[in-house]
Structure formats: structure tokens, C-alpha cells
């Protein structure tokens, strides 16, 4: 008999899980939990997260944990389990602010209003440190960046084509993620996701330089805006590139300006100053 391949865990930021709205149908005659499909097309059954415990609620049969990464929170439910009696004890022993690495199954629940809730049922809870959290964040960043690049390449094609993407050096899984993104989350803003990931993993930069760059972007948008359509995203990127700024950093600035209410997106990838 062929050994069944272990389902390797996916390392995703809390934001990718939080923005998830799609759950696969469970195949007939199969037990267990269905796969959830995230906005980046990641098909998840098993997940591995690393973060800081920010809340804990212990009851007799269930301990709930909130675990924060740089972008938000994961919700973890540890049930009393005869097969792994130590697991709930492990969860109960965790203090607030403890650093943890948790591997588990993603469990989905849809309310009558159709809102999807995802939580994690751990298979393993391990004590982490700042190094393990930083390593996890670095790898999760690597994975997100490659997935987003694959999605962007796929969108450039006339019609989605898995083989063309793998021929560029992406893995089969990355190409399939890009296909699932197009199938289920076509309008999802991956650039925003990238900006959020990049800003969370960046060291605090010189704030003076940042405010100078913010001003540059604002002035450019104000002076290069079509009255109806606004300013093209590509033009902003190109302009800032000439000023020595990488696309990801400009994305982050646009993200911040949007959050601060200084600019808004008129339509997809078109900005206007408020």
C-alpha cells in the first residue's frame, strides 16, 4: 500500500485567514474537515502559526486562545481530547504574552447570516521565542510574496494557464493558488495584502524620510490626477521609483495614506486626494 502523503501545514498570516470567505464542499463519503481557500488561493487543512498569546479563556472542556501575529489575530480552540490529554493542559499553562508556535487543523463555521468564522484546533503547541516568531514571519512573508507574484503573472495572461506560470519558475502549488485566487477572489486586492505584509516585516524606518516621501506622493497625486478617473497607480509607482523608492514601499505609503484618509481609491488602482 502506498503511504499517504502527509498534508503539510500552510504558513499564513492572520490577515489571509481573516479575509477568507470560501470553503470547499466536502467530497461525498469523506470524513474530516473541508479545505478552506484563502484570498491568495491557499488551500488549507493544516496550518502552522507563530505569535503571542493575547487572550485566554479556560473552561473545563475547552480552552480558547487568541494568538497575535504582526497583522492581527488567530483564534485557537483547544478541546479536551482523550487522544492528546496533554494538549489542553499545555494551552492552560500558557500565560498572556507567551510566545507560541502552534500547528493545527482549520475549522470553519458559517453563521445563518453567512459570515464565516475560522478557528484553529491544535495538534501541537510548542513554546516559541522571539527568534522562532521572527523566522516564521520571514517564511510566511516569503510565501506570500511568491504567491502574489504568481497571481500577478497569471492575471497578465490572456487566459489563466498553469503551465505558463510553472515555466516561469513558480511551483505547481503556487500556480494552482493563483488559479484558485482567480476562481474565488478575483476582485481581492492583493497589492494591499502585500503592502500590509511588507510593512509588518520591515524595521522601523526613519520617520522623517517617510513623511517626506508621503508628501511627495500626495503632491504627485494632486498634480497628476484626471478630474474624473484620478491618478494611475502605475504612474505613482514609476514616479516614486525615480525617487529611489521600491514598489512595495510605495504600496505601503499608499496604504497608510488611505488609512489616514488622505487619499481614496476612485476605482481599481486609481487614486485621488481627499
Amino acid at each position: 500500500m502506498m503511504a499517504r502523503k502527509r498534508e503539510s501545514s500552510k504558513w499564513v498570516f492572520s490577515k489571509e485567514l481573516k479575509d477568507t470567505t470560501f470553503v470547499e464542499e466536502m467530497p461525498e463519503n469523506e470524513r474530516g474537515k473541508p479545505f478552506v481557500v484563502t484570498p491568495l488561493g491557499t488551500r488549507i487543512k493544516r496550518i502552522l502559526i507563530a505569535g503571542i498569546v493575547t487572550a485566554k479563556n479556560s473552561e473545563e472542556n475547552l480552552t480558547k486562545l487568541t494568538v497575535a501575529d504582526n497583522l492581527g489575530s488567530f483564534y485557537v480552540s483547544v478541546f479536551k481530547n482523550e487522544y492528546q490529554p496533554g494538549l489542553k493542559e499545555e494551552a492552560d499553562s500558557l500565560e498572556i504574552n507567551a510566545k507560541v508556535v502552534i500547528m493545527g487543523r482549520v475549522n470553519s463555521f458559517k453563521t445563518e447570516e453567512g459570515v464565516l468564522y475560522l478557528n484553529i484546533n491544535p495538534e501541537k503547541i510548542m513554546h516559541g521565542d522571539s527568534l522562532s516568531l521572527a523566522y516564521w514571519a520571514a517564511r510566511a512573508t516569503f510565501v506570500v510574496r511568491r504567491k502574489i507574484l504568481a497571481i500577478q503573472e497569471m492575471k497578465k495572461l490572456e487566459s489563466p494557464d498553469k503551465q505558463k506560470i510553472t515555466a516561469m519558475g513558480y511551483s505547481v502549488e503556487e500556480a494552482e493558488c493563483a488559479l484558485r485566487h482567480i476562481d474565488h477572489y478575483k476582485t481581492y486586492n492583493v497589492t494591499e495584502m502585500l503592502a500590509a505584509v511588507m510593512s509588518s516585516s520591515k524595521m522601523p524606518s526613519d520617520s522623517q524620510e517617510e513623511s517626506g516621501n508621503k508628501e511627495k506622493v500626495m503632491i504627485f497625486i494632486k498634480t497628476h490626477s484626471d478630474p474624473q478617473k484620478g491618478c494611475r497607480y502605475e504612474d505613482i509607482i514609476a514616479y516614486m521609483k525615480d525617487n529611489g523608492m521600491e514598489q512595495a514601499d510605495t504600496d505601503e505609503l499608499l496604504n497608510q495614506l488611505g488609512a489616514d484618509g488622505d487619499i481614496y481609491e476612485v476605482s481599481l488602482k486609481r487614486y485621488k486626494a481627499v
Binding site: L131, Y135, A137, A138, R139, T141, F142
Partner: peptide, 25 residues
């Protein structure tokens, strides 16, 4: 027969400065 496996010859700790390598493209 069960796919690829890895025979480890050396195990080391990761150092803080090298972390940035692992998010790089």
C-alpha cells in the same frame, strides 16, 4: 519509494542577522 528524504549531517542554530535571508526573493 516514499519520495524525497533528507539525511542530516550538521545541525546549527539560526542567528538573528541571517533571518532576513529567509524572506528574500
Amino acid at each position: 519509494s516514499n519520495g524525497i528524504s533528507f539525511r542530516v549531517r550538521k545541525i546549527q542554530k539560526i542567528s538573528e542577522p541571517e533571518l532576513r535571508l529567509y524572506s528574500q526573493l
